[in-house]
Amino acid sequence: MGVGIQVEHLNAWYGANHTLMDITLHIPANEATALIGPSGCGKSTFVRCINRMHETNPIARVTGTVRIGELDIYADVSPVEVRRRIGMVFQRPNPFPTMSIYDNVASGLRLNGFRNRRVLDEVVERSLIQAALWDEVKDDLKKKSGASLSGGQQQRLCIARALAVDPEVLLMDEPASALDPIATGAIEDLIHSLKGRFTIVIVTHNMQQAARVADMTAFFSISKGGEGERWGELVEYTTTETIFTNPADKRTEDYVTGRFG
């Protein structure tokens, strides 16, 4: 089951660039939360701070606290442990190119030293079923490379790979932006079927997508300072319905009605 995410006073930098300014955001457990906003507003950086991928960039820096359930991820545990509990799906499908479909899904467990064949078989089947890919690949599990699938299938394979380690949270960084409309629809259906069991945070450029899949929506925007500095900040965070029908902030309204961004 998923857990909630408590983000308090989060600041992030890339070198001298202050990418995220003082974000405080409480993401509910077992729901889908969308992050929307113009390019460069820091929404991708924000999700990368939740599983500590941000700090894999040597010039990146972060302050503030992020709690996953009871766990303070910047104080209590190692980044490796954090990422084991928080799955991530990236913008472009990135299956391991030399591995079979089966090995791709099993990789998270195997690379952490898990070897029981029978359990791996079960996990691979369960994960592929959850990712709505099982019927399409069950005959080629060990015969075909993950890279031989279509883009949409590859992305669902990556989702299955993330689900296989049984995460509590699933982060999705524009998971459908490289896909055609039909594959996008499949991913969105998948998000619907997964929420309830996992806490899902999805970054999207596509407002209709946020409206279709998310229970809560956060709108990020870019603010500019006097001397040319710019940073991303959270403008408004409420139910998806409110964001799109009755936003409190003028900037949100401009964005969702298409006047800006």
Binding site: T56, V80, G87, F90, S107, G108, L111, N112, R161
Partner: peptide, 8 residues
């Protein structure tokens, strides 16, 4: 990134 994201 895919590998790191899996907690490897």
């Amino acid at each position: 990134e895919a590998a790191l994201g899996l907690g490897v």
